[in-house]
């Protein structure tokens, strides 16, 4: 679906000064085969994919994920496997040296049970990497003060988790994400826990700038098909947001019991 044909004209998704037509980002882990990944990139029309630098297999030609990602897709290397800011910084520098560009998604996780990001270390890594010229997209637990620090540090976006990574639980952090959308003047990209296209649509309806999914696509029976469903749901949610989603109302809300008296003759 071309956004220019929509009844409401959308602005392109601008991230670090670069315009994207698609607001769906795809993660690359957990796929049954690299071909499934390549097909999912194609059917979803995603223009940004995230790859863990430490997962790139440079040795095995057939296994090298980079070779399955088209040139026109922006590679967002992530620091998965980093346990603190220093390790994230080291991974980011390695990614740059390896020629993967300067877009980096900071993931600092020091808890192997819940895989929750360490917000403090993420802020530290963001501050340093922005100064080094990286385009930094930090992955965080949604928190207003943390997001404000990230704005100060020069992050290009804030990527709050919807729920635990890989949990498919959807927007468990909905209210916190709404606060970020309202208060933070950076793109809010909902990342992690989005398990169904309907959940992606919900995030977009709230006003998220984009949505990232991985597990839900990689472990689906037909990854390429669900990847397309996600992309469509993201567009639907975006259109709904731009249209102004009507508020839910109770059925018996016909008259004005409180203020009607002002208009009585």
């Amino acid at each position: 679906m071309n956004t220019s044909t929509l009844p409401i004209r959308d602005t392109p998704f601008i991230l670090a000064g670069k315009a994207f037509a698609s607001r769906f980002l795809l993660g690359t882990g957990k796929f049954q085969s690299k071909q499934d990944l390549a097909n999912s990139v194609a059917t979803s029309g995603t223009e940004i994919v995230t790859v863990a630098l430490r997962r790139i297999d440079l040795d095995h030609h057939e296994e090298n994920i980079i070779e399955y990602i088209p040139q026109n897709v922006t590679l967002l290397t992530n620091t998965s496997g980093a346990r603190n800011a220093q390790e994230a910084i080291r991974i980011a520098r390695l990614a740059k040296e390896a020629g993967h560009g300067n877009w980096i998604k900071i993931e600092v996780i020091n808890d192997s049970k819940y895989l929750l990001p360490d917000n403090n270390e993420t802020i530290k890594a963001t501050e340093i990497l922005v100064k080094e010229g990286f385009i930094v997209l930090p992955y965080v637990s949604p928190d207003l003060y943390v997001a404000r620090e990230l704005v100060k540090a020069g992050a290009a976006a804030v990527m709050p988790l919807g729920s635990f990574i890989g949990s498919n639980q959807g927007l468990k952090t909905r209210e916190m994400i709404k606060v970020l959308i309202n208060e933070i003047d950076l793109p809010i990209i909902v990342d992690a826990g989005i398990g169904a296209p309907s959940q992606a649509a919900e995030a977009m309806e709230l006003g998220a700038a984009a949505v990232l999914a991985n597990t839900a696509v990689a472990t689906a029976a037909q990854p390429a098909a669900i990847a397309q469903a996600f992309a469509l749901a993201v567009q639907a949610g975006r259109l709904a947001h731009l249209s102004g989603v009507p508020q839910k109302r109770s059925l018996a809300d016909a008259s004005s019991p409180l203020t009607g008296f002002l208009y009585e003759n």
Partner: peptide, 19 residues
């Protein structure tokens, strides 16, 4: 592994300098 529908992973984690 492939015939069972899994991706065989040789490199779990590329090393970074341990400090």
């Amino acid at each position: 592994i492939k015939s069972k529908g899994f991706d065989p992973v040789f490199t779990d984690w590329r090393p970074i300098e341990n400090k």
